[in-house]
Amino acid sequence: MRAATEGFRPDYADAVAGVRVAEHLKDFDWRIVGTPPLGIATANSDIDIICHASDYERFAKVVWGSFGYCLNFSLRQWTSGGRCVVCDFFFDGWEFQVFGDCRAIVDQSAWRHFVVEQRLLNLGGETLRQRVFAERLEGLKTEPAFAKVLGLDGDPFSEMQKLFEAKDEHLHLLIARNS
């Protein structure tokens, strides 16, 4: 459960501006991904920020110096895969999770999922958004919610990743088939 879900929580963009993400992460080609910019955030949604961090040590120093004062700050580096650096903290009623990955933004899974989800919502309109949001309210994470609504079998993360290269026509058919 989020530390500050009771009471007022500002718009995610206000929280991002308040903690000065643009200033602190300007050297890391950062992007916000996930449910808030997609318009399907729940009370438990966080703000995910992905960054291109070719120098993990430098990235860790910057996020430590920039966000270390925030509530529940933590910093860790994965020991497998790309060894991504992850920073978590709370600010202004929102949980933030900041990822530093050596891969370019366009090659990161989080970006590819976000782009596909954004395209699907643009193509499927409010009806699709409401269906996905209803699944999110039932407790599903983003990719599983999309996969369920779209009737995708298998691992939801892999299935959403496969849609990244799909043409709009294919996505339209997928949406229509599962309406």
Rank of each mutant, 00 (worst) to 15 (best):
residue 124 G to I: 11
residue 131 R to E: 15
residue 89 F to Q: 10
residue 146 F to V: 01
residue 134 A to F: 14
residue 161 Q to S: 13
residue 112 R to G: 00
residue 135 E to P: 04
residue 138 E to F: 01
residue 147 A to M: 12
residue 123 L to G: 00
residue 156 P to L: 12
residue 129 R to T: 03
residue 157 F to K: 07
residue 114 F to P: 00
residue 116 V to G: 00
residue 115 V to C: 02
residue 87 C to M: 14
residue 110 A to E: 15
residue 151 G to K: 10
residue 139 G to L: 11
residue 147 A to F: 11
residue 94 W to L: 14
residue 94 W to S: 13
residue 83 R to N: 13
residue 135 E to M: 14
residue 106 V to F: 10
residue 138 E to Y: 03
residue 111 W to V: 04
residue 110 A to K: 02
residue 131 R to K: 08
residue 119 R to C: 03
residue 137 L to N: 07
residue 127 T to W: 08
residue 147 A to T: 05
residue 103 R to W: 09
residue 124 G to T: 11
residue 97 Q to S: 12
residue 97 Q to Y: 01
residue 80 S to A: 10
residue 85 V to L: 09
residue 141 K to V: 06
residue 97 Q to R: 10
residue 118 Q to M: 08
residue 136 R to V: 06
residue 148 K to F: 14
residue 123 L to C: 01
residue 142 T to P: 01
residue 158 S to E: 15
residue 144 P to R: 12
residue 138 E to A: 08
residue 118 Q to E: 08
residue 87 C to T: 15
residue 109 S to G: 02
residue 98 V to S: 04
residue 135 E to R: 12
residue 82 G to P: 06
residue 129 R to N: 01
residue 135 E to L: 14
residue 110 A to L: 13
residue 90 F to S: 08
residue 111 W to S: 00
residue 88 D to F: 09
residue 148 K to V: 07
residue 80 S to W: 12
residue 138 E to V: 04
residue 84 C to S: 11
residue 140 L to C: 05
residue 88 D to P: 01
residue 103 R to T: 10
residue 159 E to N: 06
residue 108 Q to G: 03
residue 109 S to P: 02
residue 83 R to C: 10
residue 104 A to P: 00
residue 96 F to Q: 08
residue 104 A to T: 06
residue 140 L to S: 02
residue 100 G to C: 10
residue 81 G to D: 14
residue 130 Q to G: 08
residue 109 S to A: 14
residue 113 H to P: 00
residue 128 L to D: 11
residue 154 G to T: 05
residue 99 F to C: 12
residue 100 G to E: 11
residue 121 L to T: 03
residue 99 F to Q: 11
residue 121 L to Y: 01
residue 130 Q to V: 00
residue 109 S to K: 10
residue 83 R to W: 01
residue 105 I to F: 07
residue 113 H to E: 04
residue 94 W to I: 10
residue 129 R to L: 15
residue 91 F to K: 10
residue 82 G to A: 11
residue 113 H to C: 04
residue 82 G to L: 14
residue 153 D to K: 07
residue 115 V to F: 09
residue 143 E to G: 03
residue 152 L to I: 09
residue 158 S to F: 15
residue 85 V to A: 12
residue 86 V to D: 10
residue 85 V to W: 14
residue 86 V to Y: 14
residue 144 P to K: 13
residue 96 F to D: 06
residue 120 L to C: 01
residue 108 Q to C: 03
residue 140 L to P: 03
residue 99 F to K: 00
residue 130 Q to E: 15
residue 105 I to M: 06
residue 157 F to V: 00
residue 129 R to H: 09
residue 157 F to E: 02
residue 134 A to V: 07
residue 102 C to N: 06
residue 86 V to K: 14
residue 83 R to E: 14
residue 144 P to Y: 07
residue 120 L to H: 02
residue 84 C to I: 09
residue 122 N to L: 15
residue 151 G to M: 12
residue 108 Q to S: 05
residue 115 V to N: 06
residue 125 G to N: 09
residue 139 G to P: 04
residue 131 R to F: 02
residue 134 A to H: 12
residue 114 F to N: 04
residue 82 G to M: 13
residue 156 P to E: 03
residue 152 L to V: 05
residue 112 R to E: 04
residue 90 F to A: 02
residue 110 A to T: 11
residue 114 F to Q: 05
residue 129 R to D: 00
residue 139 G to N: 03
